[in-house]
Design a protein around this nucleic acid. Sequence first.
DNA 1: GCGATAAGTGATCACCGATCAATTGTGAGC
DNA 2: GCTCACAATTGATCGGTGATCACTTATCGC
Lengths: 207, 207
Amino acid sequence: MATTVRSVRKAKGHGAERRQEILDAALMLFAQRGILAVSTRDIAAATGISQPALYAYFRTREEITAVLCEQAFLELRNRMLAAADHQAPTRASFIRMCRVYIDFGLQQPDAYRVAFMLEKGGPQPQETKARIIAAGVESFDCFHGQVARFVAAGLTRPGESVLLSQSLWAGLHGLVSLLIARPDFPWADREVLIARHIAALSDGVLL
Amino acid sequence: MATTVRSVRKAKGHGAERRQEILDAALMLFAQRGILAVSTRDIAAATGISQPALYAYFRTREEITAVLCEQAFLELRNRMLAAADHQAPTRASFIRMCRVYIDFGLQQPDAYRVAFMLEKGGPQPQETKARIIAAGVESFDCFHGQVARFVAAGLTRPGESVLLSQSLWAGLHGLVSLLIARPDFPWADREVLIARHIAALSDGVLL
DNA sequence: GCGATAAGTGATCACCGATCAATTGTGAGC
DNA sequence: GCTCACAATTGATCGGTGATCACTTATCGC
């Protein structure tokens, strides 16, 4: 089933390529079968290497998901930066910003799950943990920068921009995470619900 | 460490007691060590029985968490019913309702995690799955009943009450789940953030 | 008392994450 | 072109996991 083709041995300085191959294989398997249902042996087989070889690139299985988490945060940041127009902020651009976030989560539910919804089992190595937090903060800073433009333009209700940003982020995350985690719940029509939710968040944040 | 005292053998008709003892032990261990860090052997030892004995009461380990999930939903419903005053709905009572939800999540983070944030590994037995969904829907119906009172009183922005309820639930869940899942994030002061979030949700839902 | 049966157990299975010594292949120096 | 240090990778294995089995033990209706 999984690609069991043994991949060629990498030349001396090219460990980074193999590392990314492992990450790609892991993300694909996570998306196909769910994060908890994928073993290190599965990841190794899909990459075309033996299971112990994984541990030359990652200290633990959790570190693999941690790096994917970091990459997911960076991808979210890139999407937000790409979508950021530099026109004067309006209610319409606020709504667009919200949609970018929600679409990211719904289009890449596994990356989103890894980034925001994964239970941490054992304590991570300090350096790995710090990198994840840093990536998360970086994404949030980007988000906060967007929100701050609305604050500066005098379009928002009173409150510090950090407070408004964290509240808004939480509001967006709530819908995305519930739609991902509880797909069997009798939700209202998804598009209508998203539109209403964004409208509510806009009314809650903007004047 | 764990209570290794062997419990007395239950008389014939008293299996339900033992079943609840297992659930209590499991919830305690989940709260202490995290859900993924608790094994069936741990739960059995804390209950005072052997590990295979668990499988006389639950078909899989997942079914234990599933039943805890169901119980968490019912507890949430009870809290909401207990807090529901039957005075005329006001903005203040709306805010109180939001606080009940948030406090439930923050005071019982593991029950909340089990109910809303747990990744389902393999497919559940159909009957167990149906019971969880039913408990979740029951909780939501209770929540929806509260929101509908505000709608009926003409206090809300336009939109079906189901839509408003799902959006509001998502907004509340977003903050609770992020505070639980990412305690290391540099959050603003928790109380201030909660107050601002509830204010935003109120402004988004109420006129 | 006694036997049917519920309640509980030790042994064991396949699989998991992780580690180890041993092996294979690569490429710089000559 | 040959050699050889070392990066890259491996098979074997460890303790622990969820789950299942045949078996034993205690209870209660008769």
